[in-house]
Design a protein around this nucleic acid. Structure first.
Lengths: 136, 136
DNA sequence: TAGTGCTGGTCTCTTTTTGAGACCACCACT
DNA sequence: AGTGGTGGTCTCAAAAAGAGACCAGCACTA
């Protein structure tokens, strides 16, 4: 067990103590994590970390997102301060989305998870296949 | 812009090249991230990184999860190889959930995001409040 | 001996979230 | 005059999640 995990263990104790009931219901980390935990949030963060994109470009970049969810996810990311939305007065008007400083900062952490996923996605797929084979 | 982000930029170029259509639809990272992106997944990973827990303990630890979603999320985490499920022949039988090696490894990466959330949740809340105040 | 509680779930029903696709105004270009 | 691209919104259907009843089996208690 490495030091990070030991460190977290003590953090968890703190949460449980603070929340009073010995549970996670008031954990302030939850709302932040849930903001990133949407189906499309991390994917859009990945795209915008690369460079700013316009609405239509994002739609083409992530073809299986519905226009409705693209609108809504970008709105939520903007609301949480990760994404900046700028309208340019072209004809027709174009809208550019980019990461804020807070967004770049958050992406630095999210990036670790993405790197892990890159390295281990075959292990996860393997586990999934084994499990399905064993359980039916 | 730090080196991590520059590094990722090149990674993204690779994905777009590989997928053929210049988009994210085949990105292998997506399925891994989505496995962690469930509403309850990261919370249960946090709990189990602390120590193994039994079903009822987890339910008490996360009081606002329904029994149905607790069952299902644990099942999914087990299927992806992050969680080990062990039944003890007590009366009545008890079931213990713990992280596998893969689960601990993944949590190491998720941990970065959790630490970020700890440090920045007030900034996110502030952004949210500002946005709501401005937009109505 | 009957009642109560705890175990880890499943089943059904309702509510919320998401997806699919039509529709919109505006303007440029052909 | 028709077509296409802009960034959306609106409606309706499908999928996912939440709420809560129910279950068998055994221990403990009254």
């Amino acid at each position: 067990m490495d030091s990070k995990i030991v460190n977290l263990r003590s953090k968890l104790e703190v949460y449980k103590a603070v929340s009073g009931g010995g549970n996670f219901s008031n954990c302030p980390v939850r709302e932040v994590i849930q903001g990133v935990s949407g189906k499309w949030s991390s994917l859009l963060m990945m795209a915008l970390a690369e460079q700013p994109y316009r609405f239509g470009e994002l739609r083409r970049l992530v073809p299986d997102i519905s226009q409705r969810m693209l609108t809504q996810t970008l709105y939520d990311l903007q609301r949480d301060g990760y994404v900046h939305r700028e309208v340019f007065p072209t004809k027709p008007p174009s809208v550019e989305y980019s990461l804020t400083d807070l967004g770049h900062s958050m992406f630095g952490a999210l990036h670790q998870l993405i790197l892990w996923a890159e390295l281990n996605h075959d292990a996860v797929r393997g586990a999934r296949a084994d499990f399905d084979a064993a359980q039916g």
